[in-house]
Amino acid sequence: MTLDICWPIGIMFSLVGAMLAIFGWVTKASGEMYKRSLDININLWWGLFLLAFGVLMLLSAYKNAQKAKSK
């Protein structure tokens, strides 16, 4: 048994996603900044998506670990 790769992927994307989403939320009033992303608050939305992806990876890592334990 070696390290389950879902852990590092999950941790990294949850962290980056949460940071991007919070950053997007804080900067949502600055319309000037989001002009280049066609007036979409891309940091907020993409941050949330990355966070969801990261959490999903963490969940699957957790499930794998439980399965390995019960064996």
Partner: peptide
Amino acid sequence: KRYCPTGLLGL
């Protein structure tokens, strides 16, 4: 450069 605001640019 055209589409990424700071934040997404880093990604």
